[in-house]
Design a protein around this nucleic acid. Structure first.
Length: 1122
RNA sequence: GCGGGAGUGGCGGAAUGGUAGACGCGUUGGUCUCAAACACCAAUAACUUCACGGUUGUGCGGGUUCGAGUCCCGCCUCCCGCACCA
């Protein structure tokens, strides 16, 4: 036992954590007189790597806010849970044969330990896990409600399918403004009754908000599953980087497009970062324009195009269809058939990457057919080209070469006429001019008009003559909702008669079945097909009785709707799927609900049906979890209306920006839907969103070029040469005037160069021009040169050396060297690099001073497995790059070590001190000593530090707790109140880094004042409590309190204590700082002027000039204008 | 190409239109020590001056203002997102 108190985080921190737990300090009640505050972190996917130092950044920031709000008298909901369905656990299961839950639970336990260690104030009694059946019961429940509703544009909300049925029965779908599939035909009430039950249900599928349907989907063969658009980046899967192909499949979909406008409008009412809103707007991609129909000469069909520039219609000189367009084959004349077929085939074989790569090259083919211009009647040739995308609009565009550069390029290439349409257009021989200025020429109806006049006139004309209409087009696609995986929520639907049916609400949750292997079956079905008895026996279902023998399907046909002969169907009207009675917020939400039970009989059945085999995607469970925290144990509803009435919506939501168009858009979609049903209180679930920055790690790696790389282009730039060392593996680093770092080396068999950028050819052209503008010369080594030289590295070395000596950058465009000979280090290649390099990440422990320990690496088998060629000298210099922390990059830093070494409080404050929460920054521990020192100094204010210097002089039996009850001085009070003011204001604007600075400043001042008075220190402990809760709790109890500091009262500052008796005025002469002047607070301006003019430095600066103006900004500054 | 954001010491970063660089790291010098570490004290934008001081400084060029890192106009660069989206 020491005889004075030392700051020992390792002792006090666990002690208080246990105490908080025993006291249930963080338990939150749904009943309170206090105002509520809901602060939410995006819950993590519990990965096997555990929590790294990047995760807690947001958790700590939100924890500080939560603790602060609590001290300000709010009842704060601050929960945490796990997004525990996901791919890694499933892959682990495939490898080990263990149930994915095993790995999931283990990872969750590890996360929990780590989270606890940081002292976060989560109410763990409210924990949610998306993979828990009691939770996913409600995910399934929401899915079923989506199935039971359609979107009505006139009501501007989701309505029950039953209403649609009534409507169809009275007026058909004519004149109806409901969101449905594009190919939905118009029909009358008579038509509706003429349909048999199955046809009616299939029609309804075109309207339901979730539905199975044929569509082009992103199919990833490596993952054996489909992916949604936001899960695909640059043509490969976001997870794993596997190739993705477009494939027509029958899958469950979410009709998110129904909410496109509302999701767009909703952005205006929420306080989210502009970049996120922009990304969502971009993703939704609304563009307003017109659709125009072109009649095909000598053919019945018509081609519809979408355009945002209908005013340019008179400039149309050709039409272009996507090669996949359904009319291509029909329209192609015999004379053109060879050309067109070849082109279609060629275009189909091109990958997305290739297509994006050369957008400059004009390709296409003439079909031989013509359309009639709707205004002039002129014959307009129809082409096909792959710059027109099949997936956007109608897959056809009108070519206006005078106003659109792509059309212009196309016209030039195929020698098509270019017609100017505006008098303000520039020379159209050089380029297209997309201007909207000026008056129209060569434009029939609209000659002489301006843009606005022309547009409205033309749209009016299109509509009255029935050749088109004003139209709004979206980029947003309906979201594919099926995943062919095991570890996800089973879709609560079964199949019968080629139609999906919902299981009964009472049978929820539909729990994942036990299976022997977590792989797809041999004939390619999802893993759920392995389950025995994966069938459902409807309770009192109203499904159509049919002759079962004919529709019992092989499992492999599950995703296809089979054709069923009419004879097989006993035709009776089918009731809609029941709507459940739900307690509702708004009265009108239930008003129009009605079931059709009275119209349509139901037939009890006891036969089992095959259940849906696919599961839901990862984003299903995370699209509504914020409500579950409010009422986590409820088994009657996903959340009780009472709980929602109290907590409303999330006040502050914190998480990474990588979810901008995934989770954050889907959640908003589901929330809008639930709002329409009156099930949730607010349109938008999160009022304010804060994106925490990513904490990146340092990755060591080497690159290995793939064969295909050498057909591509490489741009290398070395800015300042160093040739001090010329050993077999010389390496040097430096900093050039421009501030670039580089390193390169020549080896007997190796050439290592820093690659600064890699671009496509046309990009290189641009870069070359930039470089020339910078007056830097560049050396281009031709393909031939490199090919010749690649087997003689010393020759290349000489060339490069010559280039470097003259400070030239250079471009290398090798065509076919042997790839082992070119190692490329530290590169910025990302966009295209999946095709170009294999990036071999190297474990940190294998690298010392940037040099790879090859022996260890071999022992570790890190390179054997990558078939990496090791430098013969046994040394290899590793480059590094700052990138995302990830297990696969061997660059994860866990918070555990930090907590062990410095304590949780120090770790918390250090993470905050790194900079604004929103900023991304590489992890570095330099600077943590500053925070550590601060905590010890702060602690030292409470204890007599003399004892530390000279323990012998102190009595052995005193604890030397040295806080006095004496009255504080004005200086002490000013220090305290300044700190209160700044910390309070800074937390409110979420500026945690400056809060920490303020604490440091305050502590330093108190130390120099030699202050240790209760009246000052006690409020400071409360201020510090959100940031460093453990030490605050310890000191709080030292100060004699028995209850937790978490329930203390946040101190308020008093302006009076901030006042000084004198003011130091900065004095400027002609706007330049010349000195300072100290005056009493109540000095009049005239006196200040007299005093200022008497100052030596003022006289000197004025140099005798007459003063024109004397400005005093009270309390701020003095400026003398001469 | 379109959209969003940002450019401030050696570094992370501070600055309601009012002394640019708070706070911390790093560096340098000092105290303590046999010594080292820790700790403590001091200095630290650049240039210039023996010094007092002076000059220049928030990506570049203009402007508004008594006064601009901050506001306005025109550029440059970097990062992020989207991208033959008609």
């Amino acid at each position: 036992m020491v005889d004075y108190m030392e700051y020992t985080p390792h002792e006090i921190e666990p002690k208080w954590r246990q105490w908080w737990q025993a006291q249930q300090t963080y338990r939150v009640s749904n009943q309170s007189e206090k105002p509520k505050y809901y602060i939410l972190d995006m819950f993590p996917y519990p990965s096997g790597a555990g929590l790294h130092v990047g995760h807690p950044l947001g958790y700590i920031a939100s924890d500080i806010l939560a603790r602060y709000k609590r001290l300000r008298g709010f009842n704060v909901l601050h929960p945490m849970g796990y997004d525990s369905f996901g791919l890694p656990a499933e892959q682990y299961a495939i490898q080990t044969g263990n149930h994915p839950e095993v790995a999931t639970v283990r990872n969750i336990n590890r996360y929990r330990e780590q989270l606890d260690e940081i002292g976060l104030s989560f109410d763990w009694s409210r924990e949610v896990r998306t993979s828990n059946p009691a939770y996913y019961k409600w995910t399934q429940w929401i899915f079923m409600r989506l199935f039971e509703h359609y979107y009505d544009r006139d009501a501007n909300k989701a309505l029950p399918i039953s209403q649609l049925v009534s409507r169809f029965a009275t007026r058909g779908n004519a004149g109806m403004n409901a969101v449905c599939d594009d190919d939905t035909p118009a029909f009358s009430a008579e038509d509706w009754f003429a349909m048999d039950a199955r046809e009616q249900q299939q029609m309804l599928l075109k309207y339901r908000l979730t539905y199975p349907g044929e569509a082009y989907v992103n199919w990833c063969p490596a993952l054996g599953s489909v992916l949604s658009n936001d899960e695909v980046k640059d043509g490969v899967s976001e997870r794993g980087g596997h190739p993705v192909e477009r494939k027509m499949m029958n899958q469950w979909n979410m009709r998110i497009t129904a909410y496109a406008d509302r999701l767009l409008e909703g952005l205006n009412e929420i306080d989210w970062p502009e970049s996120i809103k922009e990304q969502q707007r971009n993703w939704i991609g609304r563009s307003v324009g017109a659709s125009v129909r072109f009649d095909i000469a000598n053919h019945d069909a018509r081609i519809e195009v979408f355009t945002t520039r209908v005013d340019t219609i008179y400039g149309v000189t050709f039409l272009v269809l996507a090669p996949e367009h359904e009319l291509v084959a029909e329209l192609t004349t015999d004379a053109q058939r060879t050309d067109v077929d070849a082109y279609v085939q060629w275009a189909g074989a091109r990958s997305d990457v290739e297509r994006m790569a050369d957008t400059k090259k004009v390709t296409g083919a003439f079909t031989g057919s013509y359309v009639q211009h709707p205004f002039t009647g002129a014959a307009v040739p129809i082409y096909i080209a792959d710059y027109v995308l099949a997936g956007y609009g109608t897959g056809a565009v009108m070519g206006v070469p005078s106003g659109d550069q792509r059309d212009w390029n196309f016209a030039k290439h195929f020698h098509l006429p270019i017609v100017p349409i505006l008098d303000a257009q520039k020379d159209l021989e050089e380029a297209a001019d997309p201007t909207k200025e000026g008056r129209y020429i060569n434009s029939g109806l609209i000659n002489g008009l301006d843009y606005a006049e022309a547009t409205s006139l033309l749209i009016g004309y299109l509509e009255t003559n029935n050749v088109g209409k004003g139209k709004t087009q979206y980029k947003l696609r309906n979201a594919v909702f099926s995943r062919q995986r095991y570890w996800g929520e089973p879709v609560p639907a079964y199949w019968h008669d080629g139609l999906p049916h919902l299981i009964d609400d009472e049978d929820l949750p539909l729990v994942l079945p036990a299976i022997d292997k977590y792989l797809p079956t041999e004939n390619g079905e999802p893993p759920l097909a392995r389950a025995e008895n994966w069938t459902y026996t409807p309770r009192q279902t109203a499904e159509t009785p049919v002759a079962f023998a004919s529709v019992e399907r092989e499992p492999s046909e599950i995703f296809v709707v089979p054709d069923i002969a009419e004879d097989d169907i006993i035709s009776i009207p089918v009731p809609p799927y029941d709507t459940v009675q739900i307690e509702s917020f708004s009265q009108d939400a239930t008003d129009d609900e009605q079931t059709q039970d009275d119209l349509l009989p139901s037939h009890p059945l006891t036969l089992s049906r095959p259940l849906e085999l696919s599961t839901m995607p990862g984003w299903a469970g995370s699209s509504w979890y914020f409500y579950r925290y409010m009422d986590p144990a409820n088994d009657q509803a996903f959340c009780s209306p009472e709980a929602m009435r109290y907590w409303q919506a999330v006040d502050v939501y914190l998480g990474g920006s990588e979810h901008a168009v995934g989770h954050l858009l889907y959640s908003r979609f589901w929330n809008h839907f639930l709002y329409d049903l009156g099930l949730v209180p607010e349109r938008e679930f999160a009022k304010k969103l804060i994106n925490q920055g990513m904490i990146q790690g340092r990755s060591n790696f080497v690159f290995r070029a793939k064969e295909s790389f050498f057909e591509q282009y490489l741009w290398m730039k070395v800015l300042q040469p160093y040739f001090e060392e010329e050993g077999p593996m010389a390496q040097s680093k430096s900093q050039s005037e421009e501030g670039y770092k580089y390193d390169f080396a020549f080896g007997a068999n190796n050439l290592v160069i820093e690659v600064t950028s890699y671009k496509m050819p046309e990009k290189i052209e641009r870069i070359r021009r930039t470089a020339e503008a910078d007056r830097k010369r560049m050396l281009v080594l031709s393909t031939e040169e490199i090919t010749d030289d690649i087997n003689h590295p010393e020759t290349i070395a000489a060339k490069i050396r010559a280039a470097l000596n003259s400070r030239e950058a250079f471009i290398v465009t090798p065509s076919r060297p042997s790839c082992e000979q070119l190692y490329v280090s530290q590169s910025l290649l990302y966009k295209y690099n999946a095709d170009v390099f294999t990036k071999l990440h190297v474990d940190v422990s294998l690298v010392e001073n940037d040099v790879l320990n090859v022996e260890k690496a071999k022992a570790n088998q890190q390179f054997d497995k990558a078939n990496f060629k090791i430098d013969p000298n046994g040394q290899f210099t590793c480059s590094y790059e700052v990138e995302k922390m990830s297990k696969s990059k061997y660059n994860v830093v866990n918070p555990d070590d930090m907590v062990r070494e410095y304590g949780a409080d120090c770790f918390r404050m250090y993470e905050m001190f790194l900079g604004p929460v929103e900023n991304s920054k590489p992890w570095s521990t330099s600077g943590i000593t500053g925070v550590s020192g601060f905590l010890r100094k702060f602690w030292g204010l409470f204890f007599d530090s003399a004892a530390k210097r000279n323990p012998a002089a102190e009595p052995a039996d005193t604890s030397l707790f040295a806080v006095s009850d004496a009255a504080p001085t004005a200086d002490e009070l000013r220090t305290l109140h300044t700190c209160i003011k700044k910390v309070t204001e800074d937390i409110e604007r979420f500026s945690m880094n400056t809060c920490v600075s303020n604490f440091m400043t305050c502590t330093n001042e108190l130390r120099s004042l030699n202050s240790s008075k209760r009246a000052v220190l006690e409020p400071l402990v409360v201020l510090l409590a959100p940031f460093a809760p453990h030490v605050a709790e310890e000191l709080w109890h030292h100060l004699g309190h028995e209850t937790t500091v978490c329930d203390a009262e946040w101190p308020t500052y008093d302006e009076a204590h901030l006042q000084l008796s004198t003011i130091q005025y900065p004095v400027q002469v002609n706007g330049k700082m010349r000195g300072t002047l100290e005056v009493a607070v109540d000095t009049s301006n005239a006196d200040i002027e007299a005093m200022a003019m008497a100052q030596e430095f003022v006289k000197r600066s004025l140099q005798g000039s007459a003063v024109k103006k004397f400005i005093v900004v009270p309390g701020r500054i003095i400026n003398i204008v001469a």
